[in-house]
């Protein structure tokens, strides 16, 4: 993406082209980040759209960032996910089990893979919030360690340690599900 400050200047004027460019650039990373924090794909898509709605409100009210969007969007996404979890805690819902397998490849293998991915997603949301943030930014938002550290206001060493402990925790949970 070209210089974001120019893009943001156009976006503040609610220029359709600039807004479309921003949406296309950040929709995927935001969705992945949010999907790391919530296990339901549909909810992740809805929350991603909510992030863009908040961006519009900020642009309209003059609260949008001036130079770069990446960190600001991450903060908004984190708030959106936290709000979602708070509401969900107040009104717990029962999720329907995933019954559809992938139409491609061996059905048994695909079902096994899908099951393992679902376990991984469920394990992700059981991590601490800091660990979730690090993994979501690192693997969902596709941020390098340095950017994650800058975004979260921590040192690179602290982020690496958080990442290593989160991976260890996930691995233990997956081993429990496998019966190892």
């Amino acid at each position: 993406m070209r210089n974001e400050s120019v893009l943001l200047a156009r976006a503040r004027e609610l220029d359709q082209g600039a807004l479309a460019e921003i949406h296309d650039a950040y929709y995927g990373p935001l969705l992945r980040y949010i999907a790391f924090r919530v296990s339901d794909q549909q909810i992740a898509e809805d929350l991603t759209s909510d992030v863009f709605t908040r961006l519009l409100t900020a642009l309209h009210d003059g609260r949008a960032p001036e130079t770069t969007l990446r960190g600001w969007l991450y903060g908004v996404a984190a708030n959106v996910v936290n709000d979602f979890h708070r509401q969900r805690y107040r009104r717990p819902q029962t999720e329907l089990p995933e019954t559809l397998a992938s139409p491609h490849g061996d059905p048994t293998e695909a079902a096994e893979r899908t099951l393992q991915q679902n376990h991984l997603r469920e394990a992700l949301v059981e991590l601490t919030l800091e660990q979730q943030d690090v993994l979501a930014l690192r693997f969902g938002y596709d941020m390098p360690i340095r950017d994650v550290a800058e975004t979260l206001g921590k040192s690179e060493g602290a982020i690496k340690q958080l990442q290593a402990r989160a991976v260890t925790m996930l691995s233990k949970k997956l081993a429990l599900w496998r019966g190892v």
């Binding site: 929709y27 995927g28 969705l31 992945r32 999907a35 790391f36 794909q41 992740a44 898509e45 393992q116 991915q117 991984l120 997603r121 993994l135 693997f139 969902g140 991976v167 996930l170 691995s171 997956l174």
Partner: peptide
Amino acid sequence: ETAQQLATLPIGY
């Protein structure tokens, strides 16, 4: 392997 799964976790849209 868990870290690899995370990186390739199919969160498509």
